[in-house]
Design a protein around this nucleic acid. Sequence first.
DNA 1: TTGATATTGACATTCATTTTCAATAAGAGC
DNA 2: GCTCTTATTGAAAATGAATGTCAATATCAA
Lengths: 153, 153
Amino acid sequence: MEKKNRTSLSQKWENQLSQAGYRITQPRRAILDIIAETERPLTPVEIFDLAGAQSAGIGLVTVYRTIEKLEELHLVEHVHHLGDCQTVFRCSEQHQHLLICTKCGSSYYFDGLEVEEQFNQIGKKFGYRITEHWLQLAGLCEECQKNNPKDRK
Amino acid sequence: MEKKNRTSLSQKWENQLSQAGYRITQPRRAILDIIAETERPLTPVEIFDLAGAQSAGIGLVTVYRTIEKLEELHLVEHVHHLGDCQTVFRCSEQHQHLLICTKCGSSYYFDGLEVEEQFNQIGKKFGYRITEHWLQLAGLCEECQKNNPKDRK
DNA sequence: TTGATATTGACATTCATTTTCAATAAGAGC
DNA sequence: GCTCTTATTGAAAATGAATGTCAATATCAA
Ligand SMILES: [Mn+2]
Ligand SMILES: [Mn+2]
Ligand SMILES: [Zn+2]
Ligand SMILES: [Zn+2]
């Protein structure tokens, strides 16, 4: 469900970065690949590690800078958990909401149209005109319910 | 709507801190008063400033430590905005959700029962068993809609 | 009033992120 | 391809938020 093809996604991102006037470098490519292919929010350090940045001589700073660019182009977003607000995940094309597994972290977007209609009503009760909303669900994914947790690779 | 009486609230908190075995000190009292009487989420530094801590010789560290205690007793909670995850606001008695004004910050709790029922359904679609949810609404409060923004005092 | 000790503020430390800067590599134009 | 401008890089230093250390002090139970 909403699985993305790794190569095509990071390829698409490269194009968008190029079009925005940014250069495609080897460090960037490695970082893009990891973020694009991972089905869960990652911290900068996790991205650094998974990209093999250490051994490839890539600096953690470059991870931060690449995230910055991707965020600017709305290709990734920061995900806020309860105790952790610095993970990064690829954006959904449209405005959507996240559903996150509390055990393995695997995440999906959903639109939530069925509830969004009600937000304005709730606001109205308090005299507010709602302009933003933030909805995130968490629980156990199918795999993790089977007590067969996905690897946190 | 859900306005709290300042004195009785910080008084109540003092009792709870006492009962939990913590001592009531002057610095703590000043910090408690500010958090209890302010109708919007505050950063530790804002609390420090509003409490006149600087001039009273109270350290910022004490603000952090007091927040820690209040959080432990579920009297305050951290509020996450889009770009800001370190503000603190008094808790609602029950599990509720926040409605925050984007202009002046004034905040209210609402229960959201009308939407919560649907969260499980959404999860089910993806095979998830929902255990947590996070809903927060933001917009312009009545005052700020009148272009008469409340003071951020 | 007394005494054990929780709490305090100053200071040092950690940890995440940002800034600075000289060296390097990307890629547009030829 | 080659050249040249300059965006990008990694190392190192700087910042900012939060936490730990510690001796002095204030709280509050007895
Ligand atoms: Mn939405
Ligand atoms: Mn709820
Ligand atoms: Zn899972
Ligand atoms: Zn957050």
